[in-house]
Design a protein around this nucleic acid. Structure first.
Lengths: 217, 217
DNA sequence: AAGTGTATGAAACAATTGTTTTAATTCAAG
DNA sequence: CTTGAATTAAAACAATTGTTTCATACACTT
């Protein structure tokens, strides 16, 4: 009975995650969610109470399926530079993947741009682990006596560059032109952010040095 | 007659700008706008037709009052490093000013994060001038043969760092802790972004070098 | 002063929203 | 087969939304 009856509840959660991720909490309608979840509108109240509780539940459920958002265990012998490059690349891959069935990243990005009550949970479950991973890499790349505050700011500088190409993508496209923007693909962006950030930390040549960008464009 | 009758229309535009900037297009209600503008709900349809036209008009009006968002004319003899420092600082000042009567920046940021029809106009009127200013500074800071595409990405890297502390401020505050975040004030952030970016361009010491940050915290 | 067109105000409309109610259905246990 | 709780379905409810209607007040012209 459990396995079968819970079907509706699960379908509702899955549908809610997708719809909320796409439209945001306010713009998403219960009727849309129920249509996608093939459930009656009353099911939301029956299983969750109200819309907000459904949202929270959807966010919490997303936690479980989030194994390996960003790889936390690095292979032996990797240099911190390599780790940073992979971190940035994985972040961008998760972020720019549109077709992926994983709407988790989109939900997270939406919550990051317009936080709600679920924000605290999302930070602790999603974001802090990633932040700790990044801070570990940064510690390897910087002097031992680096102030913790500066470590945070360096992390923000790196992540903010990645986020830009998702959050403000429409503006970037308008600025550089639609055709030209097609060249701003994942490898190009990842390489630039990596080189820019490493140079800022005194690792590697300045980002303006003759690079291998031509090969990928 | 004109000067007097237009009062309502003007009050409506002013109120619309504030409300839209605070709540966004969808969440803002016509009744809220009319209450603040001391006008009847029918006034919106009478003067503008519908809600969307009011929004567009409010955005367009904001253009006029935007003289000097970021200073475009630099004093003689300034080094590009100084210019970049001032650009970043001014951007952050505009961005973090909460009490300021200028809701223009907030409206712009909202449009940047969740673009609507007015996005194109906003880009051309607001953002492109600033982008050109920044690109001019970047050109001074980089080799002459720098690819245009790379110039854009460097600009994005700089601006994205500034935007982060506005768009994702709630997350940053949760991550570092509310008390600690009080130390992330404007001078500290501006100094970090400037040094980080200059170092990335091969100008100045890496951001991790002993800095003058302690003096301001 | 009468008339005219503009502007305002109160009310109503139609659509959509989250939520609740109430009845029908399902399904396992006695 | 009956019973009874759990689930689903349809409808209605109450509140809010953008929008419209229509009557009134006002300013200006003739």
């Amino acid at each position: 009975m459990d396995a079968l009856q819970e079907q509706t509840r699960d379908r509702l959660l899955e549908a809610a995650g997708e719809i909320f991720a796409e439209y945001g909490f306010q713009a998403a309608t219960i009727r849309d969610i129920c249509r996608r979840g093939k459930a009656n509108v009353a099911a939301v109240n029956y299983y969750f109470g109200d819309k907000r509780a459904l949202y929270i539940a959807a966010v919490e459920r997303a936690h479980c399926n989030t194994a390996g958002l960003i790889n936390v265990v690095w292979p032996e012998g990797w240099t911190p530079q390599q780790k940073l490059r992979v971190f940035i690349r994985q972040w961008l891959e998760q972020q720019l993947a549109e077709d992926l069935p994983s709407w988790h990243m989109r939900l997270m990005l939406r919550e990051m741009a317009d936080p709600t009550d679920a924000c605290v949970k999302l930070v602790e479950a999603y974001i802090r682990p990633m932040a700790e991973t990044l801070r570990g890499v940064i510690r390897e790349l910087t002097p031992d006596d680096l102030a913790e505050r500066q470590g945070w700011m360096i992390g923000f500088s790196i992540v903010s560059q990645c986020l830009f190409y998702k959050v403000h993508r429409p503006i970037a496209e308008l600025l550089v032109g639609r055709d030209e923007y097609t060249h701003f693909n994942l490898p190009v962006i990842a390489e630039h952010i990596t080189r820019f950030s490493l140079a800022a930390l005194g690792q590697g040549a300045p980002v303006t040095a003759t690079s291998s960008l031509e090969q990928m464009s």
